[in-house]
């Protein structure tokens, strides 16, 4: 009986402390840079005279343009790339020859 009381005396404060620690979610302090989630925007319901709606459209358009330009390969200069590749190969070849 005495042993049980002792265990209870140790366990109860320990459990209370553990619960207090869990109640504080460290995620609350984490600030991550998030991209705008434009998938939930319902354009049909948006009033285009409302500054909030206009601002949201601007933000989403900017984000879409950025994503597009990041994926746009048409601006890549393939001729230069080939030249560089050719030069690199040539240099490698020269080096090999020197050896």
């Amino acid at each position: 009986m005495k042993m049980l009381t002792k265990i209870a005396l140790v366990l109860l404060p320990a459990m209370t402390l553990a619960m207090t620690a869990n109640a504080h979610d460290p995620k609350l302090h984490a600030k991550k840079a998030e991209k705008a989630d434009c998938s939930k925007m319902d354009h049909s319901k948006m009033d285009m005279k409302d500054p909030v709606a206009i601002a949201m459209m601007k933000k989403c358009m900017k984000q879409a343009e950025k994503a597009k330009s990041a994926m746009d390969h048409s601006k890549m200069d393939h001729s230069k790339m080939k030249k560089n590749e050719h030069k690199t190969k040539k240099k490698k070849g020269d080096n090999e020859h020197n050896h």
């Binding site: 840079a33 991209k35 705008a36 434009c38 909030v52 949201m56 900017k62």
Partner: peptide
């Protein structure tokens, strides 16, 4: 001025980093 009228979804879009 607009904050009390915003939904969580609108807030997320307006405050996200470009």
């Amino acid at each position: 001025k607009q904050l009390p009228t915003l939904t969580p979804e609108q807030y997320q879009v307006l405050t996200a980093i470009d």
